[in-house]
Amino acid sequence: MISVRNIFKDFGDLRILNGISCEIEKGECVVIIGPSGSGKSTLLRCMNLLEDPTYGEVWLGDKLINDIDPYLHYDAIEASKTYANLVSTGLTRDEAIAKIKKEDLLKKHEGPAFKKICREIYEENHLDINIARSRMGMVFQHFNLFNNLTVMQNLTLAPVKLKLKTKEEAEAKAMELLRRIGLEEKKDEYPSKLSGGQKQRIAIIRALCMDPEVILFDEPTSALDPEMVGEVLDVMRSLAKEGMTMVVVTHEMGFAREVADRVLFISDGQIAEEGTPNELFSNPKTQRAKDFLGKVL
């Protein structure tokens, strides 16, 4: 479903993501945990390109959604001038490719053949980012409901503007989802009149109104008063049960343990460990995971 291929993310001189690859399968609930500042949000935001990875590729299904990263395509590397120079000095194909990748040797201009093949790969595979995003929902820590719109308008704006649904269809879908979370009487309220838990549940169904293939959650309960955490987790739990594909960054270890199919432990911009909740929580292998879990459990 989502395939993250060797992504790096730099903010200025700081390398925040340091070579992350992972596959999110259809129907899976993947929970991402890790210390504060380890890059969890950045990874999640790279999946829908709210952050543009510095290197690496992000794929949705079989479509590339960011720019091509030539280091991931051997045929592109082989078409580069740098490769030709290395081979002419006597290196074999594999040695030349390994050297280029290891030492980051590709330059901006690598000749017309290189340019052409990069463009071909891109044109063959790329998917417009707005279309990709319309297929991936996102739920934010601070809800980010549109303050100038009513609940109903929040729910129907995107599907109608993007012509995925008619106004009537979108409103019918929105009503159905509002009923599901028990907030149908709030449909004409503005977000400022809702509690945090209500806002976040609306934010979740705003994503659902797009009929997304996957939903990304960035600490959806961290900004909530404790008594409202449960109602939001309940909605997420029921989504997971229905087989919605979900990627969830959270500090709710209980939720991770119960709902996750797989847990990724991120530390210093890398996936330090991954496994089923049972493996990771009961029996962490790396020292970093042990330290982290020792603190939070």
């Binding site: 995003r133 100038n148 704006l157 995107a158 503007k161 994503a207």
Partner: peptide, 30 residues
């Protein structure tokens, strides 16, 4: 206007022009 408003719009797949016109500018004008 909170950057989260823009991010929420873009994350739904709305192009930046629509996000601007339907979400950010109305709040900015206010």
């Amino acid at each position: 206007v909170d950057i989260g408003q823009t991010e929420a719009g873009r994350a739904l797949g709305l192009p930046s022009s629509i996000t601007m016109m339907s979400i950010v500018i109305p709040q900015a004008i206010k």
